[in-house]
Design a protein around this nucleic acid. Sequence first.
DNA 1: TGAACGTATGAATTAATGTTCATATGTGTG
DNA 2: CACACATATGAACATTAATTCATACGTTCA
Lengths: 109, 109
Amino acid sequence: MKNYLCDYAQKAEKNIPDDTTASELADFLKIFADMTRIKILYALLDMELCVHDIATILNMEQSAISHQLRVLRQNKLVKVRKEGKSSYYSLNDSHIHEILIRGYEHISE
Amino acid sequence: MKNYLCDYAQKAEKNIPDDTTASELADFLKIFADMTRIKILYALLDMELCVHDIATILNMEQSAISHQLRVLRQNKLVKVRKEGKSSYYSLNDSHIHEILIRGYEHISE
DNA sequence: TGAACGTATGAATTAATGTTCATATGTGTG
DNA sequence: CACACATATGAACATTAATTCATACGTTCA
């Protein structure tokens, strides 16, 4: 049974985020781990859209979209503007573009 | 029942990746959606490590690490170098750094 | 060749997550 | 106020995924 660590491995230990940070990071990146949410984010890249339009564009139920928008909203990736009967959603995070682009680059290779 | 789309919404439609692309993208980003894998990736940021050392550093079972390394391997995020009894893993993707950094920036705000 | 070590993997279990369905809340309009 | 429209949400169901356990495979060395 080996419980020790080589010197170099001890260095690696320092790079690893603590449980709280790692967990927050995982939770954040988890948001991008879903096809529906990715599509929603892409739809919102250039403009704000109301729930109904997103559902129509993605050809999905309003309820499903609404649930996913809640996830995005709670994680501050999108923001809402209410006007009349509608809720207009738009992006709320500057890193989204970057992450989506890096991801796309990866699968394009 | 509204089946039409406003002009601006039709533009949004063009940004949305097709199902295949969106699915691949989601699958790729899904890899980052787990605390264990994030820790492994951080551990490998500066150096290669064998399975046993990763398990020790993360204080987890060898089997769990091995399973996750397989996910990372299959998705080409890490590569293996076999030497003697050990398998040494290292990063295999230039976007990893960027994604982890963007994620960290987000949760730091 | 047998024993120890390192790694990989299949099966089972448990936990987390996405979608649907039904329904509630809220807003504008006749 | 009654009704249509837009959105939000709780519960149920189905699916996916992470970990553990047991074990197999591969390598080194006495």
